[in-house]
C-alpha cells in the first residue's frame, strides 16, 4: 500500500513524515521520528507504556493510527521539561523515587500530566483512576501515586 504523508506537531515542533496506512503513532514517533521516550510494552493497549497526549488527551500510541493525527499536537515525555527545568511531575517523581526500571515512567508521566492539566487538585482516587491503565511491575504504585499528588500540590502552591 502506498505510504501517506502526515503532518503533526511533536512536542512543539512541526514534523512531516510518510507513514503506512496501518502504522501506529507509537511506531511513527519512535522509528520514524526518533523520539524513543514512549515505549512498546504490549502493542495491545493494556500496559500504557506508550501513553502520549494528542491535543492534550491521553492516548495509547500503540492503538492510534498515525494517519488520524494529521494536524494534531502530540506530546511525549521528551517534551515535558522546559529546557533544563523539569516539569513538577518529573521533579516529584525524582523526589519520591517513583521509578525503578523506568520503562513505564514516560507513559505514567503523560497519564499524570493529562490528569493535572484538567484537574489541578485531584484526590488520591482520581490519581489512581488516571493511572489505572498504566502497568508498573516494580514500584507497587505507592510512590507514583504520592509523586503525582505532591506535584499537584506543588503546582497549586505556585499558583497561589
Amino acid at each position: 500500500m502506498a505510504r501517506m504523508p502526515v503532518q503533526f506537531r511533536l512536542n512543539g515542533t512541526d514534523r512531516a513524515v510518510f507513514v503506512e496506512p496501518v502504522e501506529t503513532l507509537l511506531g511513527t514517533i519512535r522509528r520514524g521520528l526518533g523520539d524513543f521516550a514512549p515505549k512498546f510494552g504490549c502493542g495491545q493497549g493494556t500496559c500504557g507504556a506508550c501513553t502520549v497526549l494528542v491535543d492534550g488527551e491521553p492516548r495509547l500510541g500503540c492503538l492510534t493510527l498515525s494517519v488520524t493525527c494529521e494536524g494534531r499536537s502530540i506530546e511525549t515525555a521528551s517534551g515535558l521539561a522546559d529546557g533544563p527545568t523539569l516539569h513538577p511531575l518529573q521533579a516529584a517523581f525524582m523526589e519520591h523515587f517513583a521509578a525503578q526500571c523506568g520503562f513505564c515512567t514516560p507513559g505514567m508521566l503523560m497519564a499524570a500530566k493529562a490528569l493535572l492539566d484538567r484537574n489541578p487538585d485531584p484526590t488520591r482516587v482520581e490519581v489512581v483512576e488516571a493511572i489505572a491503565g498504566n502497568i508498573c511491575r516494580c514500584t507497587g504504585y505507592e510512590p507514583i501515586i504520592n509523586a503525582i499528588l505532591a506535584a499537584a500540590q506543588q503546582r497549586g502552591a505556585r499558583r497561589a
Binding site: C42, Q44, T46, C47, V125, V127, V128, E129, I131, A132, I135, R137, G140, Y141, E142, I144, I145
Partner: peptide, 18 residues
C-alpha cells in the same frame, strides 16, 4: 493470559499501606 487484562495483578487501586 495473553495481555495485562487477562494476566491479573493488583492495580494502583488495590494496594495496601506498608
Amino acid at each position: 493470559g495473553r495481555d495485562y487484562n487477562e494476566y491479573l495483578m493488583p492495580g494502583p487501586g488495590d494496594i495496601a499501606p506498608h
